[in-house]
Design a binder for these strands. Structure first.
Lengths: 156, 156
DNA sequence: GTAGGATAGTCAACGTGGTTGACGAAATGG
DNA sequence: CCATTTCGTCAACCACGTTGACTATCCTAC
């Protein structure tokens, strides 16, 4: 896509491009370590599942999507071997969603790569600039903007 | 979505959140001006069509997606009244894609809102910080990262 | 002038990620 | 004990992307 010719377009486009650059690098690196099927959204999901596990409904709430959408995503991650479903002994309605060993590995690897990418940015821009970007963004983004609903791009 | 507990996760998440915050504000404002059906991706498409118009194939190349995907998106924008297709008098194979008056209005309005949002960021963070973010990101993003392929989030 | 190859647009099938509505089974609380 | 709530799932649908195949048109080379 061509870079924008209108001045105001630059900021959102650059934020998106920065995100994409990191995500593209992450997944290139993950693929090198055997995680070829992991998609960008999956990392968010693994992160949201967490070490303790959750249910599909709860996962949906954390990700800001419906329980049905969360369930489908869990299906895919289960098929890929990153998650597993186990019956909740305390409540027969619930099915706990837990990370498998592969899931833990993928999430751990992602964290390592992100740390390394941040270091790379710091090496180019300076650690203070990277920290400044993070601080500035934290001031500008509302707390509830960490959502994952992407029907036709974010919100709909 | 919960904020990340791993340090390296913060940067990509904040970049995405910053983008989302701007986009959400943009579309709230666009809706207030009658553009309720315009989705985030549509602005990119209108931008890519440009004042001169294009063809679907060319649009696909500009957006980094297949000509079929570009054609479908054009279909939707045509249905919404933002684009129109006209036969190319010089080449019977081609169908020029052009912005309608509504399309121009939407794009123009987007530019105004983005400028205003950038001013708002500058008012909070300082104009120098905003400019620094843009400069830093320009240094870190490869030129070809402005793409629009979003099958399961960016790249696939 | 015509044969052959490249290009533009479209159709079909499919994958992924989202939505709503409906429904059965299990838990919970008056 | 029954009414309500909650959890998971099914079904239909939409937005956005993919590849492969096909037609129509244009261009070029013989």
């Amino acid at each position: 896509m061509a870079t924008p010719d209108r001045p105001g377009f630059a900021l959102p486009l650059l934020l998106l491009a920065g995100f994409r650059a990191l995500i593209d690098d992450l997944h290139a690196e993950l693929a090198r370590h055997g995680h070829t099927e992991l998609r960008p959204a999956h990392g968010f999901v693994l992160q949201a599942v967490g070490p303790a596990g959750t249910t599909a409904s709860d996962l949906g709430q954390r990700l800001g999507v419906s329980k049905q959408a969360a369930g489908k995503t869990v299906d895919r991650l289960v098929a890929l071997g990153y998650l597993e479903r186990v019956d909740d002994p305390a409540d027969a309605r619930r099915k706990l969603v837990r990370m498998t060993a592969r899931g833990h590995d993928g999430l751990h690897r992602s964290a390592l790569v992100f740390d390394e990418l941040r270091d790379r940015w710091a090496a180019t821009l300076g650690a203070d600039r990277v920290a400044a970007i993070e601080d500035d963004l934290r001031r500008m983004v509302p707390a509830d903007v960490f959502r994952l609903d992407v029907p036709g791009w974010f919100g709909g």
